[in-house]
């Protein structure tokens, strides 16, 4: 049998009875009502409430995560500021230690110099004192010698005749005595 004629036949007969297609078959309508009722009841009573539950669970989870993240962030921030403060403290402390050491060193330097100067001054003063003492003693010695020499001389002058030649000799001797001293 020729295929194309079969096809045409099929279409023609289909057209003849196609109105039947547009009419619902009662048993199928009943099945459809039951089937859709099952679906609707299930969606209405079960899916919709469960969908809200799922959304609520998600909302709670997200909110919880956000809160936890915020908390963690705050903790981290406080930790960072804490570390920063500690770091600043350590820096200040280090600086003050260095400064203190510098000051101590400076102080020591000043002290040493002052002490050295004082010592030197003391030594100088003592030396001056000693020198002055020596000088005074020498002067005193000289004075006493001059006195005794003068007395000697006077004795000699008085003990001998007073002529010019004698005076002159006396003076010369005195002077030579002086030179011998």
């Amino acid at each position: 049998m020729d295929y194309s004629s079969l096809l045409i036949l099929a279409v023609e007969e289909g057209e003849a009875s196609s109105a039947e297609l547009l009419l619902p078959a009662w048993p199928e309508l009943v099945a459809g009502i039951i089937a859709f009722a099952i679906v609707y009841f299930f969606v209405w009573r079960w899916v919709w409430p469960n969908m809200s539950k799922t959304m609520e669970a998600r909302q709670a989870a997200i909110a919880g995560e956000v809160t936890a993240a915020e908390k963690a962030k705050e903790e981290a921030e406080s930790l960072v500021s804490d570390y920063k403060a500690r770091l600043a403290d350590a820096k200040t402390e280090g600086n003050s230690i260095v400064e203190e050491a510098r000051q101590t060193a400076e102080q020591m330097r000043t002290d040493i110099i002052a002490k050295a100067e004082a010592d030197a001054e003391q030594i100088r003063a003592k030396a001056r004192e000693d020198a002055a003492g020596e000088k005074a003693r020498a002067l005193a010695d000289a004075k006493s010698q001059v006195g005794s020499i003068s007395v000697d001389l006077a004795e000699k002058i008085v003990g001998e005749s007073l002529d010019a030649q004698a005076h002159q000799d006396l003076i010369n001797r005195y002077l030579s005595d002086l030179e011998k001293l």
């Binding site: 099945a31 089937a35 299930f42 899916v47 669970a57 998600r58």
Partner: peptide, 20 residues
């Protein structure tokens, strides 16, 4: 027709069985 309803119910049931 009934099978279609059951497939829909099953798909929704397995998707929303517990709030995930």
């Amino acid at each position: 027709i009934i099978l279609a309803a059951l497939v829909v119910v099953a798909a929704l049931y397995f998707a929303y069985r517990k709030p995930r």
